[in-house]
Design a protein around this nucleic acid. Structure first.
Lengths: 254, 254
DNA sequence: CCCGACGGTATCGGCCTGCGATACGCTCGA
DNA sequence: TCGAGCGTATCGCAGGCCGATACCGTCGGG
């Protein structure tokens, strides 16, 4: 995913890393897990798993449940800290609310992180029952509208590097997995100022997205507007909503 | 806050606990922090803070920012794991969406945790711009509608214990801080099946809440409906929305 | 019925890892 | 020109963590 910058291993705390490796087990296996399962999935022995889990339960980051252990409520506190401290989130909330009212479709703010995007704010549309539309969801950048919008602000070489580090696996039968094809879409987004993705993460879904930059002009996030092909044609959706996405993203940039 | 169950200290990993102590520093000091500040706030020396922060940056749980370090995006992934695994959240999402449509006011699902409640799902009303209405926010149980609704399902003795462990500090000039007065409100909630709190956490705000139980009948969460006194009288708000809160909470219980 | 596999729990000696004192170069503002 | 911060880097000692091992339940199958 994102290895940040090769950390000096002399200052690396193995026990801390193993504790987080334990917490991360549930992202691949979302159910109550036993000590043995945790140990195997995290690549540690049962003794270490025992010590780590006891500690994490004591701290509230894991909870005992019928059938084993599950993530604890403390995880929500840490996420809240992140959302509260990040100025972009605070600025984006009212902008997205307005956008949602104007457009009537689902609008999202996603954060650009390495080879992925991460939904931070999501305002569902009235008609769509939100299921699995929770903040914190992470998707690959290469096949999402927000990801491509962000890539559009990078050089072709940087886009190539990102794509080469990505796991280019198709999520639907329409997902583009050829790096050259993705790059072509990124170039189109660069020219238009927004990206449009059709059914590449969810069949029947059309999404336009515009990039949000930091003060140095680097892409850090994207504003998405998502609709369904049951109600819109691609051309009509682009024409109608792309300008709004761009305007909102601009308001949040810099 | 919630010490769960006194953990065997022979199996307690000090280095892991210190790493989380570092992460938790930002909940009291929501801004970019330097190593020295982190060390002082977490009660460790600068060397330990250096090693822990290097490790957490490498793992993505902290990020470098102008002026110091801030929480990292990985926190959102862990919160997502929690929300995805907890069956109550999944069941609650469509119920709250319907409730939001029916009532037109802000509706929340809060989780009952020790002496506090924790907002897990929040659907803002159309007219209110949401600011600081993020999931993950934690409030004391004693002065919130959801907290009192949950306490109503406990024995008086258990409520007393909870109140004695709580920090009974007023949030507004209307907050009840006398344990006996709070207990009286809890008894009222026990009789009525829901709690109503007026301006005790936010001036001008009225909230009704009903408790959600697990299969053993223990309170685990609450459904809130919140409005403003600019639009509603207490009596009218209770009459109109309490039945909906109770119905939704019942649907999620057991 | 007894066994083996699995659950969680507990113990312990030894080694390696994390500890914390210390020092360095840098950028501020006084 | 300081001194107080900042982040960074080093290093020997000590003791905290490691992981093998064992224990006691509860299953379900042979």
């Amino acid at each position: 995913m994102s290895e940040s910058h090769e950390i000096d291993e002399r200052l690396f705390l193995r026990s801390v890393a193993r504790a987080f490796a334990v917490l991360e087990v549930w992202s691949a296996e979302p159910r109550a897990l036993s000590l043995g399962e945790i140990a195997k999935a995290a690549g540690i022995d049962k003794s270490a798993a025992q010590r780590i889990c006891q500690t994490l339960v004591g701290l509230g980051y894991l909870e005992r449940a019928p059938g084993g252990l599950v993530p604890g409520k403390r995880a929500l506190d840490r996420a809240f800290d992140y959302l509260r401290i990040t100025p972009l989130i605070e600025r984006a909330a009212p902008v997205l609310a307005t956008l949602r009212e104007t457009c009537g479709e689902r609008v999202d703010l996603s954060l650009f992180d390495g080879t992925t995007i991460l939904y931070a704010l999501r305002l569902q549309s009235r008609r769509e029952a939100f299921f699995a539309t929770l903040p914190g969801r992470r998707l690959p950048a290469f096949c999402t509208s927000g990801g491509r919008a962000c890539m559009a602000l990078m050089s072709d070489a940087a886009v190539d590097r990102l794509l080469s580090r990505s796991d280019l696996v198709a999520r639907t039968r329409k997902t583009l997995t050829d790096p050259a094809a993705v790059l072509e879409k990124v170039r189109e987004a660069r020219e238009q100022g927004y990206a449009c993705v059709m059914e590449e993460t969810l069949l029947g879904e059309v999404v336009v997205a515009a990039p949000v930059t930091d003060s140095a002009g680097r892409p850090v996030a994207a504003v998405h507007i998502a609709g369904t092909l049951a109600e819109w044609s691609e051309a009509e959706f682009r024409r109608r909503f792309a300008p709004h996405a761009i305007a909102a993203a601009d308001a949040l940039s810099g």
